[in-house]
Structures are given as C-alpha cells and as structure tokens.
C-alpha cells in the first residue's frame, strides 16, 4: 500500500511537470499559455468581471491571478477599468485582440496532441496506483 501511494505521488508530480512544460510551450508557440487561455475563455463568458468573480469562476484565490492578469494586460489581451459605480472595484474585459488570439490558440491546440497523449498516459498510470479500497 505504501509503495502504491509513493508511486501515485510520484506519478502526480510527473503529470504536474508535463503540464508545466506544455504551459510554457503553448505560450512560446501560440502566444498564450494554457493558464492565460483559460482565463480569457472565462472572460468571454463574463464580460466586465471583477477579479473576485473571475477567480471564483476558475476556482482559485484572486491573488493567484494577479501576475497572469498583469501579463495579459501588458499583451493588450484584456482591459482593466474602474467600476463606474464603485471605483475601488476593477472590471476586466477581454479585448478583441485577446479574443482573436484565444480563438487562434484553440484552433492550434491539435499541434500538442503528442504532449496530450503523454499526459493522458501518465494520468492513467497514476490512476492505476490508487488503492482499490480508496
């Protein structure tokens, strides 16, 4: 049992490494990392979202998004403005450039089919490590 748990833990670590590599590759080749792409995808569905509602939608703490949002803003993929009814709040919108880049990235995801296959295999192996009684 202990051996299985050790192997499971290691497999999950390897999956994390593969996902991290895919993230970097995606940003290099497609101008958007998976994380950035996911945020933009969410923003399409919530125009004028606050950082809090965006974080809630993707399932993270708002502070986790800060650096990614800054990068997206620098690239002009999102626009941040003060809420007209409460200047303490910020409203975040995806720009047309952000939308076009996101759409182009979605079409190019097939370029990473090999990487997805590797992650899929690693995930299967990890799942096999989960004890039957769990």
């Amino acid at each position: 049992m202990k051996k299985n748990m050790d192997q499971l833990f290691f497999s999950l670590f390897q999956i994390g490494v593969s996902i991290n590599q895919l993230n970097k590759q995606s940003e290099k080749q497609l101008k958007l990392s998976m994380v950035q792409w996911s945020l933009l995808k969410t923003l399409v569905e919530i125009p004028g979202a606050t950082a809090h509602s965006l974080a809630e939608a993707v399932g993270v703490h708002p502070s986790t998004l800060t650096q990614t949002l800054k990068r997206l803003e620098r690239k002009k993929y999102i626009f941040v403005m003060s809420d007209p009814s409460d200047s303490r709040k910020k409203l975040i919108s995806i720009t047309r450039l952000g939308k076009e880049t996101m759409d182009a990235t979605s079409k190019s995801l097939l370029n990473f089919s090999e990487e997805f296959t590797v992650i899929q295999k690693e995930l299967k192996q990890a799942l096999q490590q989960i004890p039957a009684e769990a």
Partner: peptide, 20 residues
C-alpha cells in the same frame, strides 16, 4: 456614471458582443 462612447467603455461594450 461614465460616458459609454469613450474608448475605455467601448472595450467593455465590445466584450459583450463575444457572447449572446
């Protein structure tokens, strides 16, 4: 209240057009 037809507000308005 802020002007709708300003450059900044129009970015927000445009983002509404990306979904129904």
């Amino acid at each position: 209240m802020i002007p709708l037809l300003s450059k900044n507000s129009l970015v927000l308005l445009e983002s509404f057009s990306f979904t129904r």
